[in-house]
C-alpha cells in the first residue's frame, strides 16, 4: 500500500508535466490547426538555455530570466510568425511535417551547440522525503505536482474568467465567427503560442532536475504529451489534463508492476485503442470530418 501511494504520487507528478505539455499542444491545435511534433523539444530546450547561461558565467537567476525571455520570444512569437504563419495555407500535414524538421533541428542544435551528455540542472525544490499517512513521499514529486497544478488552474482561470481568455476560447472554437464578432483573431492565436511556450518552460524547469538536462529528453516527453493530448481529447483542455495524469499514472504503475522495459509501450497501446474506438478522445467532442 505504501509503495502504491508513492507510485501514485510519482505518477501524478509525471502526469502533471505531461499535462502541461499536452495542454499547450491542444491549445495551438485548437486555434491554428498546428500539430506540433516539436513539442517535446520545446520542453527540452529551456533547461538547456539556462545551462548555457550559467556556463557563460551568469548568476542562476539571470540565466533563468534570460533563457525564459529568449525561449518565449523565439518559440512562442518566432515559431508562430516564421513557421506556422507561412505554412498554414498549405494545410495541416505540410505544417506538421515542418514541425518534424524543426524538432530534428532543435535537437541537433542542442546536441552540438551545447552538450551530448546529460547535465545536472539546479533544482528549485530541496530533495527530501515527507511522511504522509505513514507513507514516505518524495518532496520533489509533491512540489512538481503542486507547481504544475497551480499553473494549470491559473490558465483555466485566465481562460474562463477574463475577457481576453474568453475571446481566446471563442477563437479556438470558431475562428470565423470570432472574426465576425470583431475579435482580433490573429492576436489571440499569437497569445496561445505564447502560452504554449510558457507552459513548456514551466514543464522544462520542473522535469530537468529529475531527468537531468539532455538534448534527447524531448523524445519521451513529447511522445507522452502527444499521447496524453490524443487520449484525453484533442480538442479539449480538460481532456489534455486528464490524459496527462492518466498517462503519468499508467507510466509509473507499468514500470513498477508490469515491466520497466515496456513502460512506454503501454501508453502507446492505450493510444491505439482510443484512436480506433473513440478517435475524438475520452473527453473530446466529435469533430466534423470531410467524409
Amino acid at each position: 500500500m505504501d509503495q502504491f501511494l508513492q507510485l501514485v504520487v510519482a505518477g501524478l507528478a509525471t502526469g502533471a508535466i505531461y499535462a502541461l505539455a499536452a495542454i499547450g499542444f491542444t491549445l495551438v491545435w485548437q486555434t491554428s490547426q498546428t500539430i506540433n511534433f516539436a513539442q517535446g523539444e520545446f520542453v527540452m530546450l529551456p533547461a538547456i538555455l539556462v545551462l548555457v547561461g550559467t556556463h557563460a558565467g551568469l548568476p542562476v537567476w539571470a540565466a533563468f530570466a534570460v533563457a525564459s525571455i529568449a525561449f518565449v520570444l523565439l518559440f512562442g512569437f518566432g515559431f508562430k510568425r516564421f513557421l506556422v504563419e507561412p505554412m498554414q495555407r498549405h494545410g495541416v500535414l505540410p505544417l506538421a511535417i515542418a514541425t518534424m524538421a524543426l524538432s530534428v533541428l532543435v535537437k541537433e542544435a542542442a546536441k552540438n551547440g551545447f552538450s551530448a551528455e546529460a547535465q545536472p540542472f539546479p533544482s528549485l525544490v530541496p530533495d527530501g522525503m515527507l511522511s504522509l499517512w505513514g507513507a514516505a513521499l518524495s518532496a520533489r514529486d509533491l512540489a512538481i505536482f503542486v507547481v504544475a497544478v497551480v499553473a494549470i488552474v491559473g490558465l483555466q482561470l485566465f481562460i474562463t474568467r477574463t475577457r481576453t481568455g474568453r475571446t481566446m476560447q471563442a477563437t479556438a472554437q470558431n475562428p470565423t465567427v470570432a472574426r465576425i464578432l470583431g475579435i482580433p483573431v490573429e492576436r489571440m492565436i499569437l497569445l496561445t503560442f505564447l502560452i504554449n511556450a510558457m507552459l513548456a518552460l514551466v514543464a522544462s524547469y520542473l522535469v530537468s532536475p529529475v531527468y537531468l538536462a539532455k538534448f534527447s529528453n524531448g523524445e519521451s516527453i513529447g511522445l507522452a504529451a502527444f499521447i496524453a493530448a490524443i487520449v484525453g481529447g484533442f480538442n479539449q483542455i480538460r481532456g489534455a489534463l486528464a490524459g496527462g495524469f492518466l498517462i503519468g499514472l499508467i507510466d509509473n504503475l507499468t514500470a513498477a508492476y508490469v515491466s520497466s522495459a515496456y513502460r512506454t509501450a503501454v501508453p502507446l497501446v492505450v493510444l491505439v485503442v482510443v484512436i480506433l474506438v473513440k478517435p475524438e478522445g475520452l473527453l473530446g467532442r466529435k469533430e466534423e470530418r470531410t467524409v
Binding site: 502527444f226 491505439v272 484512436i275
Partner: peptide
C-alpha cells in the same frame, strides 16, 4: 499517430 505508436 497510430503508425507512430507502432514504430515506437
Amino acid at each position: 499517430f497510430v503508425t507512430l505508436a507502432f514504430t515506437v
